[in-house]
Design a protein around this nucleic acid. Structure first.
Lengths: 409, 409
DNA sequence: TTAGTTAGTCTTCCGACTAAACAAACTAGC
DNA sequence: GCTAGTTTGTTTAGTCGGAAGACTAACTAA
């Protein structure tokens, strides 16, 4: 169906063409090498129409003929594959500990995946943006050097990002009211392609939705455990943004009024119970100090090592944190009813010990576990989930019909 | 733009026509008496196209010429208004205490609003469905008697309703796995129009979104306080359904592990703290007994009376419940970021005393109250919010392009 | 070599929108 | 009262994109 909920948005032929081009493009993406006849049969479009659409896509270099023909009875088919080579989408992430840049070609092939250490809290927003710009420039010139047209750049930030790309608050970067989108656009010289900013968990959810182990599941949530805890929520195939773009802020939902103190001033927030600091406090009752650890990865690895070795304190800490994680996941499950909740961040390396307790608690707390309960799963992305999601978001826009105009010719 | 996220869904001229018919219809609905020229100017459609579309809508009797012409320079315009008279949408609600039926014409005018007392818990699902069917028949024959074509029937149920219209669990009706949609369809003799089932809070949210005091706000939630507490969530203009249709089940989110016992076996769920029983327990510490009150309205009125008279116990109970209500609303606000949370059910008659504490608590608990905080508001619908929403959902489908085929002629 | 099968293109048609001219119906002003 | 001006809505011609089906191409099988 045609979407027409927002008021005066008439439709004409260009829209029909764009939509059908996108339909064909998506089919080619999803069904690897396929012929025009396949497309016509599957989509219901007329053979002639498919031919015309494919010609258009070939001219735009979005699709390529492999020449290979199958070996069956009848005339052999010229097979089509997605031609990623002419385009690239760039995703980035700013985090307390690192900057990440990922570039994907149109087919989703990873062109580059860079990571640079970075101290978000120790530099001013201006300096941070300079660092981001530098990394973006390198990534952009790399893909441009390969002759690719850049389709867009999306950057993920751990904080509240409004609809205009302004970072309203990012506690773990020390940012308030930073207009990252505008500044980055200016620094990169107002390029043609769109530059957008989004919450990191939102982007990670998009990555999972598109290329993760649970790709294609229309209702999923991504729950990221880092210094903060945030969620990205996809319902009915759409990423939720809400009135101001601040969905999924589950980190400061209070689970236990008698719980440990949280940075926000309250007690027993999910973040305090199941954020990195919450785990490390419990796992290291004697040595833990309350300053936010900038680079917590070694400490998390140490906890994993102890758990593997059977350390009682570590195992108890993991079970308890797992329980709170399940409690938090249950809030998500009850409110937005995802089919699967994908855990990211430090939950992944410790998943082996967190998951059993978390899944049990989650199941206990969902109203109809047999019918509506959510599964927990571990993210298969590494540190580049959000950056990959940023690139994925751009490719999703192409799939939705915003085809790039042919660059040369 | 044309919506094409779900995979193979090509578009042709019929879709273009349907979309543009809907565009014109929505414009007429929103801009009361207006001329063809107005529509063309506002939508960007060509005057000739608008004429053609309007002719089509006139034939379908969705729109009517008022004949009235404005008194300005130039040729007078023939004004168009929505013609509700040929169609009707029926919404119903099954509740623990009553059955409701509402019929609206296409313009949203209320054709009937009936309420029948009913004891959900004291009759079998079969008997209950017989009662629903009887009321539905009366409503349907009434609107049919007025010469109206029925566009659809939607029925709201306080419980988990899956995507197929099966009521999986409805604690306050004592239902499990009741295929209400199928049974009602059969009982009404497989009519042409769609018969659907949805959660009552979901439907109430639709009603608010369409005709409430906050109509048109694209991000809103409806929080219903009855025996249970449930939410309907609209994000970016769409009602959330989730993987199984079980969104908004906030009633058994635990806010206080040390709180009062809840029917679900845990402690301190929002429902136990801020459901009707939770309030009455606190307001009547001496006389309250724990059986679920079937008809709680008189008792709520009594609490209101006492509050008005300055009764300390009642005021303290209301302040405390208001606080928990704000806490629950904050969970909603942090997860799905609505602009406004509309309170329904018993929260309305007691809103005067609940709101201050609730709003304060909500504001305290949202991460960026200045930027993303949600407002609380009271529903302006009475008992027929869900039923009205059921009818509204059908009219929304018409607005989205599912135009009825012309009945006669 | 011929029959059968499948792929893809070509041609014709139709439906829906645009553009621009035009007819209709009014007001304003001399 | 007549003309000029203005606005509405229809008519006509033209364009675009998809559907249907004939047709060509290229192969397998026997």
């Amino acid at each position: 169906m045609i979407d027409s909920l927002t008021t005066p948005q008439p439709v004409d032929f260009a829209d029909v063409r764009a939509t059908n081009l996108a339909v064909v493009l998506r089919y080619v993406r999803g069904h690897a090498p396929c012929s025009r006849a396949d497309i016509a049969a599957a989509t219901g479009l007329n053979k002639a129409t498919v031919s015309s659409l494919v010609t258009d896509l070939l001219e735009r270099r979005l699709v390529r003929e492999t020449g290979l023909t199958e070996n069956r009875i009848g005339r052999p088919a010229t097979m089509l594959v997605l031609d990623g080579s002419s385009y690239a989408a760039v995703g980035m992430e700013v985090n307390a500990d690192y900057l990440t840049a990922v570039a994907l070609d149109l087919a989703g092939e990873r062109l580059l995946s860079w990571r640079r250490s970075f101290s978000g809290l120790q530099v001013s927003p201006g300096k941070a943006i300079a660092g981001v710009t530098a990394l973006a420039r390198r990534a952009l010139s790399r893909v441009a050097g390969e002759g690719r047209q850049v389709l867009g750049l999306t950057i993920g930030v751990p904080g509240l990002v409004d609809a205009d790309g302004v970072v309203r608050v990012a506690p773990n970067l020390g940012w308030r009211e930073v207009d990252l989108g505008k500044q980055l656009t200016a620094a990169l010289g107002d390029p043609e392609y769109p530059i957008t900013v989004d919450n990191d968990a939102n982007l990670a959810a998009v990555a999972e939705h598109r290329w993760g182990a649970e790709a294609g599941v229309p209702n999923l949530a991504y729950l990221a455990g880092e210094l903060g805890v945030g969620a990205g929520i996809i319902v009915d195939g759409r990423l939720l943004h809400g009135a101001h773009g601040f969905t999924g802020e589950i980190g400061h939902v209070q689970l236990d009024p008698a719980g440990p103190e949280c940075g926000c001033g309250r007690r027993g927030c999910l973040e305090a119970l199941a954020g990195v600091a919450g785990l490390l406090r419990r796992a290291n009752p004697d040595t833990f100090t309350d300053g936010q650890p900038t680079d917590w990865e070694p400490e998390v690895q140490e906890v994993a090592r102890r758990a593997r070795a059977g350390d009682k304190v570590a195992l108890a800490a993991l079970a308890e944190v797992g329980g709170w994680l399940g409690h938090g996941a249950a809030v998500l499950a009850n409110l937005v009813n995802p089919e699967v909740i994908i855990l990211g961040g430090y939950f992944v390396p410790l998943g082996e010990w967190l998951l059993p307790a978390a899944q049990e608690e989650l199941t206990r707390r969902t109203l109809a576990p047999d019918a509506g309960g959510a599964r927990l799963a571990l993210s298969t992305f590494g540190h580049d989930a959000a950056a990959t999601g940023g690139a994925a978001k751009i490719l999703a826009a192409v799939d939705a019909g915003h085809l790039p105009v042919p660059a040369s010719r």
